[in-house]
């Protein structure tokens, strides 16, 4: 059979063109679905900027960034984001001091030392940690970890950043370990064999050969973990307290950016009030803080997979 000039094979013309039209329409619909993600990003940026613009018309950027008090709901209002940023940074730092070493060592162990059976059992079990609802972790921090820590520091307040930070740390271990382990396992075997052939032990090979080769993948895992810790909400809202105090001491209660948004949302603030606008300003700050680490993580990951 000779193909007809329009390339449709033996099909009648009408059926062909309607089929082409249908294929086109479907392709457009699929593209539309894919563009949803772009729309969501634009929507997030748009809503946060649009709703916090009136806030920044009322509060100067200098006051927002330097005032040491955050009391937007009081009659004598102060609009300094610093106490919330400090709370976020302290809980994040505690979480990272927990998660980065533990997660990295776990990853090295699973990738370099553990037998196949151990790896295949432990990995899914660790990933269960990401399936536990964060409000359950909050309950755990407030009613288990804090009383436990109070055995060590008798005068530790019931709400404190230490216990919230530690629990967030455990929560993000699987994010750190899973991605780091993938990166380490992607390091080609011949590099390891070269190291073993030179007489290096498993530890020497792991620390001096495998980890440096997988560094950008591990860094991407760290970036993801940091961004999770910054954005974590329920654990800090439950266990770290809800008074915005400017303190760098993890043994004290303080409020994070996320906990503030929860606190305001629990009340009934009228749309358009300064308190309502302040949660969008806080959200914008939060988004910018996490964006930094998300972009870094994305670039690092992309660079790493290209390298091998």
């Amino acid at each position: 059979m000779k193909p007809s000039p329009d390339g449709s094979g033996g099909c009648p013309r009408g059926a062909h063109s309607s089929r082409v039209a249908r294929e086109r329409a479907i392709e457009w619909a699929l593209l539309f679905a894919a563009l949803t993600s772009v729309a969501v990003t634009v929507g997030i940026a748009g809503v946060l900027v649009y709703e916090s613009l009136p806030f920044f018309r009322h509060v100067s950027l200098a006051e927002f960034l330097t005032d040491p008090q955050w009391t937007p709901l009081f009659s004598e209002a102060h609009y300094g984001i610093l106490p919330l940023v400090a709370g976020t940074l302290v809980t994040t730092a505690v979480a990272l001091l927990m998660a980065l070493p533990v997660g990295t060592i776990t990853a090295i162990y699973l990738s370099e030392c553990a037998t196949l059976v151990v790896r295949e059992t432990v990995k899914p079990l660790l990933e269960l940690l990401t399936a536990v609802p964060t409000v359950v972790f909050g309950y755990f921090a407030l009613l288990f970890v804090t009383p436990f820590l109070q055995l060590i520091w008798a005068d530790l307040p019931g709400f404190n950043m230490l216990s919230a930070g530690l629990v967030i740390g455990v929560m993000i271990i699987p994010y750190v370990s899973s991605l780091s382990e993938d990166a380490m396992r992607a390091v080609p075997m011949d590099i390891r064999e070269g190291s073993y052939a030179m007489g290096a032990t498993r530890m020497q090979t792991a620390l001096r050969v495998v980890v440096p080769s997988a560094l950008s993948g591990i860094a991407a895992a760290y970036a993801l973990g940091i961004s999770r810790a910054i954005g974590e909400t329920m654990v800090v809202a439950i266990a770290a307290g809800m008074q915005p105090t400017l303190t760098w001491n993890p043994l004290e209660p303080a409020e994070t950016i996320t906990a503030y948004i929860v606190q305001v949302s629990l009340g009934d603030l009228p749309h358009g009030s300064i308190g309502y606008q302040s949660i969008f300003a806080a959200g914008l700050t939060l988004l910018l803080m996490t964006l930094l680490f998300n972009v870094a993580g994305y670039l690092l990951r992309k660079g790493f997979w290209k390298a091998y």
């Binding site: 990003t41 909400t233 959200g283 988004l287």
Partner: peptide, 14 residues
């Protein structure tokens, strides 16, 4: 990739 890293509470604000 970026949306996967946006904190969940930000979706709430959206």
């Amino acid at each position: 990739a970026n949306l996967a890293g946006v904190p969940s509470i930000v979706y709430g604000l959206l």
